[in-house]
């Protein structure tokens, strides 16, 4: 039971308590004002008519009903074939990227390589990250023509930057024990990498490749911009050129379903690879990657801080 005195004291204390002032008030204001200025500066100058925005919901619904009321299921074979072509482009691209980024990852890892080399390797990776797929695609089309192979190579080359950087981060996170052990038995640089680094990083690196494959499936739609095959090209033709809306409904559905199915399988495989057969370690809950993202499958929760 509380005595009147303590009750009284408590009340007085709570009156005396001054709430601590909120920190960062100035910071908060700066951010708010900057965002407001940015918003008004861009929206007031951008070339968009208000009437277009107002028509938007109505038109979207109209064309969606054209697509799905009902979809033209006769193109399902064509759509599936195009989607498999997209998957093939994404897969080959990812393999190309895996092969090319693997050595670069080692060169960019601070615990294996000297500083100047690390710096140079990182700049190379940054270069590949900064160039969009479409640019590489334009670069390869004169050589290979408007063919899926050009897309696969474009996807592959533009994936080097991300996979390489993430590989380097995985390598930097290894346990140095085995490294020292191999060094103690007289192992050279390559032997250290072969017997202590690779066994440690391989599961995570393979998971990275799979993750990038999932992203590349989405990115392979870039082929549609120039007409180099795959589901992207089919959709651009159906929607943008021949206006086959009912057919586009089917293609879109096929694309979404197959993408999600591959995501699920790939996500399971990734978790199994990282977790291993015995140890039930939680490695995150994601089945699917974020779109376009060039960053890791939930390795840490601040993966972007160190890009």
């Amino acid at each position: 039971m509380t005595t009147p005195t303590t009750d009284d004291q408590a009340r007085r204390r709570s009156q005396d308590i001054v709430r601590p002032e909120k920190p960062f008030a100035r910071f908060r204001w700066t951010v708010t004002i900057t965002l407001l200025v940015l918003w008004f500066a861009t929206t007031s100058t951008v070339d968009i008519e208000l009437s277009n925005i107002l028509e938007l919901p109505e038109r979207t619904v109209f064309y969606l009903t054209l697509m799905y009321g009902p979809p033209d299921l006769t193109v399902i074979g064509q759509a599936t074939e195009a989607m498999f072509e997209s998957l093939a482009m994404a897969w080959v691209g990812t393999m190309v990227a895996a092969a090319l980024s693997f050595p670069l990852g080692f060169l960019a890892a601070q615990n294996l390589t000297r500083r100047p080399t690390v710096f140079a390797a990182r700049q190379v990776l940054n270069f590949f990250r900064a160039v969009p797929e479409i640019i590489f695609l334009i670069l390869f089309i004169p050589i290979f023509g408007l063919r899926p192979m050009a897309v696969a190579l474009a996807l592959g080359i533009s994936s080097i930057g991300t996979i390489g950087k993430l590989t380097a981060e995985v390598i930097e996170g290894i346990d140095p024990g085995p490294l020292e052990a191999v060094a103690a038995t007289g192992g050279g640089r390559l032997q250290r990498i072969r017997w202590s680094v690779i066994p440690q990083v391989m599961p995570e690196v393979v998971a990275l490749w799979l993750y990038r494959f999932e992203i590349n499936i989405r990115n392979s739609a870039v082929a549609g911009a120039v007409g180099a095959g795959g589901i992207g090209t089919l959709l651009v033709r159906q929607i943008g050129q021949i206006r086959d809306w009912a057919g586009a409904g089917t293609s879109l559905a096929v694309m979404i379903l197959i993408t999600l199915a591959v995501d699920t399988i790939s996500g399971r495989l990734r978790r199994r690879i990282i977790r291993g057969p015995t140890r039930p370690v939680d490695v995150g809950t994601d089945d699917q990657p974020h779109d376009e993202g060039r960053d890791p499958p939930g390795r840490s929760h601040t993966p972007l801080a160190s890009t």
Binding site: R218, A221, G232, E292
Partner: peptide
Amino acid sequence: RAIPDLVYAVFFVAA
């Protein structure tokens, strides 16, 4: 997430 940005773009351009 499963729909690529290019497909959104071509849809809204047509619409």
